[in-house]
Amino acid sequence: MHRFKNTLLSTVIALSVAAAPSAFAHAHPTTMAPAPDSTGPAPSKISITFSEAVEPKFSSIKLTNMEGKSADPQSSAAVPGDPKTISLPVPTLPAGTYIVHWVNVSVDGHRLQGSYKFTVR
């Protein structure tokens, strides 16, 4: 009886793990330069690396100031040879706080977006 219970419990645990689809499957940012909430010199580019490969046509970075006005007229692009990273070249930024808005679509078609702040001294 004890053995049966153990077998049943093992089966239920195995099935509950096997039954969970990968619903958490999104490309989350793993490395951001400049880092969120950081203060430092003006960066020459903004670069974000995600946890998995992203679709370049549907993934982008935009930079705005605190008033929501665009601080960079250029477009972001995928980094050649690195399908997980997109970057945005930026002009010399005056001192102030900026917001990085990012959107990505992972290769399985899932979309994720977010934003973070950094400050230029």
């Binding site: 195995a14 096997a18 969970a20 689809p21 990968s22 619903a23 958490f24 499957a25 946890s51």
Partner: peptide
């Protein structure tokens, strides 16, 4: 394969 997929899918 379900256990493998779930494990990989959830990091």
């Amino acid at each position: 394969t379900g256990i493998y997929n779930s494990w990989e899918g959830q990091g």
